[in-house]
Design a protein around this nucleic acid. Structure first.
Length: 289
DNA sequence: CAGACGTGGCC
DNA sequence: TGGCCAAGTCT
């Protein structure tokens, strides 16, 4: 679509206010971008920063990571959360080495086939690392467009066809500009059009925002699902993984038993961790893969 | 497709 | 203080 009146203000705002994040620098490699995207899935930038730096120093290429056991990736993942992502990143690195000549793919469909890479990440890597033209629909972009164009405070639970159409219609024609637009809208959502307490006074397109124009009406939709935590298997798995991460080698049953009081739940979670490939058992010892 | 999946900071 | 939220993916 031809230039939208939204483009120039947002691109100009990004030019002046974008954070200086290492994976956005010119020297960042596609591998660095891919690593950042996996780490940033459901995890705040501030927590990713130090882990990303150490990761890229230790494994500057997919082949470097693929050369080590997956457990090393899980350990280096630290406390970022959702450690299956570490396993998937290791598997993605292996696939890149074995199937793509060691180069992170540049096209959406090939990226999408990598472990841990879904619609968002495939579009993000194609766009940010290679300047391809894609609608990049993350939680920030979805929130910005819901407000700016849709006039509602929150987007639907899952990406709708209308949302995707809207995002694609807004994409600048020129691939390089579209790529900057994608990261700019995302940054706008992260810094200005935030989930809580949006700073509309600092928004470069406040004068065109449907939600603001209608007086920022409160959310009026189905209840947004929270994330249960206390006493859940996720918490139990987290405890068990913490024990294994912090141990130099393998651990015995007693060390795992000490991590969670409910024996039945503990056994179920340990079994699920083994099924996920996050834990391996040899005789009566447990360790990272 | 709704639910599972970690972790910690913030108001 | 506890619910909410953070660059989602997978099944």
């Amino acid at each position: 679509m031809p230039a939208s009146p939204l483009h120039a203000p947002v691109l100009d705002w990004y030019d002046h206010h974008a954070r200086d994040l290492p994976w956005r620098r010119p020297e960042a490699t596609p591998w660095g971008v891919l690593v950042s995207e996996l780490m940033l899935q459901q995890t705040p930038v501030a927590r990713v920063l130090p882990v990303w730096q150490a990761w890229l120093e230790r494994w500057p290429s997919p082949a470097a990571l693929a050369a080590e056991p997956a457990g090393e990736a899980v350990r280096a993942w630290g406390r970022l959360g959702y450690p299956r992502r570490a396993l998937r990143l290791h598997a993605a690195a292996t696939a890149v080495r074995d199937q793509h000549g060691g180069q992170v793919p540049s096209d959406y469909a090939t990226l999408l086939a990598l472990p841990g890479v879904g619609d968002y990440t495939a579009a993000a890597v194609a766009s940010f690392a290679y300047g391809r033209r894609h609608a990049v629909l993350d939680t920030n972009v979805r929130r910005v467009l819901a407000r700016l164009v849709g006039g509602v405070e929150w987007p639907a639970q899952a990406v709708t066809r209308a949302e995707r159409d809207r995002a694609e219609a807004l994409l600048p024609d020129e691939p390089a500009t579209a790529a900057t637009w994608a990261v700019a809208v995302m940054e706008l959502g992260a810094l200005v059009c935030t989930a809580r307490d949006p700073r509309c006074e600092a928004c470069p397109v406040a004068d065109r925002c449907v939600w603001l124009a209608s007086g920022r009406p409160a959310y009026d939709g189905p209840p947004r699902r929270g994330q249960a935590w206390d006493g859940t298997d996720r918490q139990c798995r987290g405890r068990l993984m913490a024990v294994l991460r912090e141990a130099p080698g393998s651990v015995g049953q007693a060390q795992l038993d000490a991590a969670w009081p409910d024996a039945a739940q503990r056994e179920r979670c340990l079994a699920s961790l083994i099924a996920d490939g996050l834990v391996v058992r040899s005789d009566d010892r447990f360790a990272l893969p």
